[in-house]
């Protein structure tokens, strides 16, 4: 690990002031960044400890939603009774990820901002445009079983590893961000992550010093919420493919549906055209097959991850069948 200057922030203003340049990084739970610093994938000159900022509460919002402080642990979100009762999708997604130890330490803000587990990104001897712009992409030709099939570019095929963020996407969460000048803004999950394009090192809409302070959930709109994840072992593994669905049936037809996909794209994937295709229709095997085909129409496999193109269609059909029963 490279040497760094450590500072503990007492409040949000101190944090954003201390982190306002490219050599600084925030640390909260640390479960990802400490690992990346050991690997020297991440080499911040200054580490700003935000773990003691007063962002540890889950509170009701006026419109009947929930505000989750960015420093709330993943465990605490999954254990919260309001989350379990009204946003079971979120609790399920969190519980499907990592281990008890990691979930206790990892925060909501950190989970959103964790980096890809692309093997080539984590190996500093390999070419990686995300780690070193212009270096190339070893994943395209190398083993790429875990890599993405949707939203990729010729410069990067890394997949976003989060389960929680997939649930937040399907639940239409918003991210509250405080900038270095103290201004606060709300960012929709849709606008939070960038696709790699020709600049895969830029992953979110955040500017230097921006701090994620809360995640805001709107009131739940669908009775049926499902999170299903396929992985290489029964527990403690990243998703090969996951599907989050929030669905409401009315008079035998799909009245509303939000879908998000994990393990397949550089960000929690969502395709409004697939949702539109389902809305107003009675559930049927043909409909679900059609939805899956539309979803993967733009998919690109790189050999080792070709199987995900079939797998995500099958998982989507299984989830839609269960949700519409």
């Amino acid at each position: 690990m490279r040497p760094f200057d450590y500072r503990r922030a007492g409040d949000v203003a101190q944090a954003t002031a201390a982190a306002g340049d490219a050599t600084a990084a925030y640390i909260a739970g640390g479960t990802n960044i400490i690992d990346l610093m050991k690997l020297e994938v991440s080499t911040p000159a200054r580490l700003v400890d935000i773990s003691r900022l007063p962002l540890h509460r889950i509170t009701q919002t006026q419109d009947g939603g929930l505000r989750i402080g960015a420093m709330v642990s993943n465990s605490a979100v999954a254990a919260d009774m309001a989350v379990r009762q009204r946003y079971p999708l979120l609790a399920r997604a969190i519980l499907a990820g990592a281990s008890g130890q990691i979930r206790n330490k990892a925060t909501v803000g950190g989970n959103l901002l964790q980096r890809t587990r692309c093997a080539w990104f984590q190996d500093i001897s390999a070419a990686c445009n995300k780690r070193e712009p212009g270096a190339g992409c070893a994943a395209k030709d190398g083993p790429n079983r875990m890599n993405a099939i949707l939203g990729v570019s010729g410069h990067c095929i890394a997949a976003h590893p989060s389960d929680m963020a997939v649930a937040l996407r399907a639940l239409d969460a918003q991210i509250e961000v405080t900038a270095a000048d103290g201004a606060t803004r709300l960012v929709a999950m849709d606008d939070f992550y960038r696709l790699p394009g020709d600049a895969p090192h830029l992953e979110t809409c955040l500017a230097e010093g921006d701090l994620v302070t809360s995640v805001i959930l709107p009131p739940p709109t669908a009775e049926t919420q499902i999170y299903r994840k396929i992985r290489d072992r029964a527990s403690y593994a990243f998703a090969l493919v996951s599907v989050a669905a929030a669905l409401r049936m009315q008079d035998g037809r799909i009245a509303a549906v939000r879908l998000a996909f994990g393990g397949v794209a550089p960000r929690p994937w969502n395709d409004p055209a697939v949702e539109q295709l389902l809305i107003g229709q009675p559930p049927s095997k043909d409909l679900f097959v059609h939805a899956g085909e539309a979803l993967v129409a733009p998919a690109i496999g790189h050999g080792g991850n070709d199987f995900k193109i079939t797998m995500v269609q099958r998982l989507l059909a299984a989830v839609l069948r269960e949700a519409s029963e």
């Binding site: 450590y6 281990s99 130890q101 206790n104």
Partner: peptide, 27 residues
Amino acid sequence: CDHGQCGACTVLVNGQRINACLALAVM
């Protein structure tokens, strides 16, 4: 493993289990 994958370093911090290898002592 020293990378949070094996759990051999598990300790309790304020009663909760964590991986001590993925924690900075100063924090």
